[in-house]
Simulated scan of single mutants.
Amino acid sequence: MRKHKLPMAILLICGFIALGFVNSSKERNLKVLPADISDERLDSLMQTYNKGLGVTCDFCHVHEIQNGDTIWNFASDDHPVKEEARRMIRLTIDINKTYFNYDPKMHPAYLNKVSCNSCHRGNAYPEE
C-alpha cells in the first residue's frame, strides 16, 4: 500500500504544477477590472455585458490567425470599441460607488445596481 502512495503523490504534484503553467499562460489585459479576478467571475461579467448590450464577444475583442487557426486575442487593444467599453465600465463603477451602498471590502466592478442593461436594454447603441 505504501508503495502506491509515493507515485500517486508525485503524480498529483506534477498535475498541480502543470495546471499552474496552463493557467498562468493565459494573457490578460485588465485595466479596469481587478487583476486577481477569477476566470469564472470574469466570464460571468462578460456575459452580463453581452446581454446588456445585445452583442457577442467580437463587439470588443479581436480574432487572430495563428498556425492557420482562428483564435480569440482577448488581451489585444486593437478593437477601438474596447476602450469605450472600459470607459463605460468606469462610469457604472462610479455611479454605483457614489449613489448606492458601497461596501469597501468588495471591488466596485462587482456592484450591480446600475449596469449596462440599465441604459442599453439589450441595444449596443441605446436611444438618446
Rank of each mutant, 00 (worst) to 15 (best):
E128Q: 12
D103F: 00
I71W: 06
E127F: 06
K31C: 13
S118Y: 13
S25Q: 08
A85T: 13
I65L: 13
E83M: 07
G122T: 03
Y49P: 02
E83R: 11
K97G: 01
R90V: 06
V32L: 05
L11T: 13
N29D: 05
L45F: 14
H120N: 07
I37K: 02
L12F: 13
A109G: 15
P7H: 03
N50E: 15
F21C: 11
V62H: 04
M106V: 15
W72A: 12
C14M: 14
K31I: 11
D36S: 07
L111M: 14
K26A: 13
G15A: 06
N23L: 11
L6C: 07
L30N: 12
T98R: 06
C116D: 02
N50A: 11
L45A: 11
K82F: 00
E27T: 15
T56Q: 14
N67F: 10
H107K: 05
L111Q: 12
F59G: 03
N112H: 05
Q66D: 06
R121C: 04
N50Q: 13
S25K: 06
A85R: 00
S24E: 08
R121S: 11
T92L: 02
D36F: 02
R41A: 13
D36N: 15
P126D: 01
I65F: 03
D58I: 06
L12T: 13
D58Y: 05
E83N: 07
D103Q: 02
N101V: 04
A85Q: 05
G68E: 04
L19S: 11
R121T: 07
T98I: 04
V32I: 15
N112R: 04
N29T: 05
L91P: 03
A18V: 12
F16T: 15
Y125K: 02
D39A: 11
M106I: 15
L11D: 05
A35Q: 14
A75F: 02
K51N: 13
D69Y: 07
Y125G: 00
K5R: 07
F59K: 10
K26W: 10
Y102I: 01
D94L: 09
C14Q: 08
K26Q: 14
K82V: 01
C60H: 09
I13Q: 05
E127V: 10
R41W: 03
V22E: 06
K3Y: 12
V114G: 00
E64A: 12
F16I: 15
L91M: 06
H61M: 03
K51M: 05
N29R: 01
E40K: 11
D39E: 14
S24H: 15
G68N: 04
C116I: 01
E84R: 01
A9V: 09
E64M: 10
L19Q: 10
N73S: 12
Y102D: 01
N73I: 10
K26R: 14
S115K: 14
F100P: 00
T98W: 01
R28T: 15
E84P: 02
N101H: 09
N117H: 10
D39S: 13
N73M: 10
I17H: 00
N117C: 07
D43R: 09
E40Q: 12
N67L: 10
R121K: 15
A85V: 14
C57M: 12
S38E: 04
